[in-house]
Design a protein around this nucleic acid. Sequence first.
DNA 1: CTAGGCTTCCTAGAGGTCCTAGGCAAATAA
DNA 2: TTATTTGCCTAGGACCTCTAGGAAGCCTAG
Lengths: 188, 188
Amino acid sequence: MARAGLTAERLTQAAAELADEVGFENVTVSALARRFGVKDASLYSHIRNAHDLRVRLAVLALAELADRVSSELAGRSGKDALVAFANAYRSYAHEHPGRYAATQMALDPDTAALSAAGKHAEMTRAVLRGYDLWEPDQTDAVRLLHSTFHGYVSLERAGAFHSHPRGVEASWTRALDALDSLLRSWPS
Amino acid sequence: MARAGLTAERLTQAAAELADEVGFENVTVSALARRFGVKDASLYSHIRNAHDLRVRLAVLALAELADRVSSELAGRSGKDALVAFANAYRSYAHEHPGRYAATQMALDPDTAALSAAGKHAEMTRAVLRGYDLWEPDQTDAVRLLHSTFHGYVSLERAGAFHSHPRGVEASWTRALDALDSLLRSWPS
DNA sequence: CTAGGCTTCCTAGAGGTCCTAGGCAAATAA
DNA sequence: TTATTTGCCTAGGACCTCTAGGAAGCCTAG
């Protein structure tokens, strides 16, 4: 019987595609095995368990997102950089809802440290170099930006903004204007 | 054999307690049945299915949260109201992590309309009466505030802020200062 | 080239969750 | 008291997770 050629990497990649198709919460070992035409038990030589699979997926998505943000950020500064960062973040979430959901998993500290999570914080700090902010305000601003981006995207995806006719796109643009204005005159 | 006296309301209430103890994602029909010393199948006379149970829990949590915010908001305006709103929101999320996670469920439009979701938007608008904002800026600001609060709380709970020594409490206070300042000089 | 050894994938099976169908007994109404 | 409704039961199917142990593919050394 021909082998399917499974590896942890291929499984993780397929899990990512699966997540975007059926939702992160529906990424199961069984569904993944089905996709490879293989029995469930076969996957356990490559991944420890279902949780391990989801963690690998989260790490993959964090790295992808960091890459996208990083390349959008290159050569920009100030409000330009802020907008590029925010839009890269949001477009990734829209194009890859399952992967994005994965990035919101609670990772244990060791895994988080090894993941691209640190790169995200570093890039946010890079955006802030275009504004006149120093510690501890810089950390506060990093947290505020991250919160706002994540909050907006996740509420948007949950449908929380559908109840009002005002365009979601327009509110987003205004939010970025507001954040830029806020960063330029950060209260002391 | 004595009856357990199940009703949809008692089940929902127990599900809420269960959610806070073991996490929203672990609220299962089986676990709930166990808690009442009853077989799984018995619950299906009261709830349609597992999804229905989670929706009921979400609706309950939304109502509780709206009540708390509402009572904290009474008699306050301006920044006072903003801070009270934000803290009520955040403290509910901390005290009731499982219930809070439930409020983030995607509800279908009909259910959402019947729930307290509308009251939340209305209360946020009430906070904004202390600032000089009119449509469509008001809606944009509602969305920004909601995003920031939700984003902050959910990243905080996911442990995203643990990697840096700066106090989470201090950053929160500064975020509220920043939002107040932003609302007072909303860019046009 | 062929014989061991490792790896990959298999079968078998236990245990958990979700849910339906159909039955008996408790509570309530006539 | 009898009839009806309702609440909880047993039984069982479908799906998911995961372990143990077996066999067949692949690799390397003699």
